[in-house]
Simulated assay, not measured.
Amino acid sequence: MQPVAIIPFDVQVTPDTLSAVTSAIQIQLSRDFVPWGRPAVCGWFSSLEQMPRGCWPVLLKRDAKGVAGFHAPGSESDQRPPFAIVQYSDDSAWTVAASHEILEMLVDPRGDFFVKGPNPADPSEAVEFLVEVCDPCQGEAFCYQVDHNLWPCVSDFCLPGYYRIGASGAPYTIRRSVQTPFSTAFGGLITYRDSAHDWWQLSGGRIARANRDSILGNQSATAWNFRGRVDRCDKLYQGPPPVKSTSRYSAIRKLAGRSQKNIARALHAELERLEEAQKLSQHNRAKSSSKGS
């Protein structure tokens, strides 16, 4: 069972709030997420240094580069596990984003999971869809509470049948927000690449070409978490450095015997890279603004 943990990084969140959110996500994982066969336990810690080895952190930050959240693969070389960053807000939006990133990270921690399906532009042609289980139904209207009390909201997500994995047939999301495989609900999107390795996105019934460099950068197609690439389109922070392709869980097994302090250090270093990119982005914007005036 894979442990995941929500950790406030540069924000203050009360223990009661963290307990309520992680309890709601745990119910979602134990009750609703079972069809994916990714058992997990969700908790929280006050800092990275308190996080046990083998745990995948979800870090709450004041600034997640203009997106609700993103996740990135781990690295064996610097002992960094897969992790996610979620932008914290005073409203309930961050709880949905945390659920979103946890579910997607569990299904595809490396961000290189594709399935074949019909091209939305030409169903006679097969394309490769990126498996990001919350993106097609990520519209705000489809989040839900795990019971009928005042629990924090969690994200809707696609079931395996949406990607025609295993048993097919409806429902295709836990909230029944999508009516057919490889389609999107209002506010959702799905990313795919065609036989020519051109990238496209389907959203709201419209198909738009996606710039390859904005999604993949200049690195190998197996080196990055593609959701992070899509979310950070045209941003200066390019995600963690590329890592050698390995089996999905080999890095996690190797982490078990390594220093907890080193793991925290590696994650802190990656967050410092994000902060440097943010500062550079702000400097460039200010410079551009001064030139315009």
Rank of each mutant, 00 (worst) to 15 (best):
Q2G: 00
V4D: 00
I7S: 08
I7A: 01
V11K: 09
D16G: 01
T22S: 08
I25G: 03
Q28M: 05
R31E: 14
D32K: 04
V34H: 04
W36K: 09
G37D: 07
G37W: 06
P39I: 09
F45W: 03
S46N: 02
S47A: 07
S47E: 04
S47Q: 08
P52R: 00
P52F: 01
V58G: 00
L59S: 01
L59E: 01
L59Q: 00
K61Y: 04
K61G: 03
F70E: 00
P73W: 04
P73C: 00
G74V: 10
S75C: 10
S77P: 12
R80H: 05
P81M: 02
P81S: 03
P81A: 01
A84H: 03
Q87R: 15
S89I: 09
S89Q: 14
A93T: 13
T95C: 11
T95Y: 05
S99H: 01
E101T: 08
I102V: 09
I102W: 06
L103N: 05
E104Q: 07
L106K: 13
V107Y: 00
D108I: 07
R110W: 04
D112L: 06
F114T: 13
V115W: 09
A121S: 14
V131T: 15
C143W: 07
Q145F: 14
V146R: 06
D147C: 06
N149M: 11
L150I: 06
W151C: 12
C153Q: 10
S155D: 03
D156G: 12
F157Y: 06
G161K: 09
G161F: 05
Y162S: 11
Y163A: 07
A170C: 05
T173R: 01
R176S: 10
Q179L: 10
S183F: 14
G188N: 09
G188D: 13
Y192M: 12
R193T: 02
A196S: 14
H197Q: 14
W200H: 08
L202M: 10
I207F: 11
N211L: 02
N211G: 05
R212V: 02
D213G: 01
N225C: 15
N225P: 10
R227W: 15
R227D: 15
R227V: 05
V230G: 12
V230A: 11
D231N: 15
C233M: 15
G239S: 07
R248E: 04
A251L: 13
L255T: 08
A256E: 12
S259K: 08
S259I: 06
R265T: 12
L267W: 02
A269R: 09
Q278W: 08
K279W: 11
K279T: 08
S281Q: 10
Q282S: 08
N284D: 14
K287E: 01
K291E: 08
K291G: 15
G292W: 07
S293P: 13
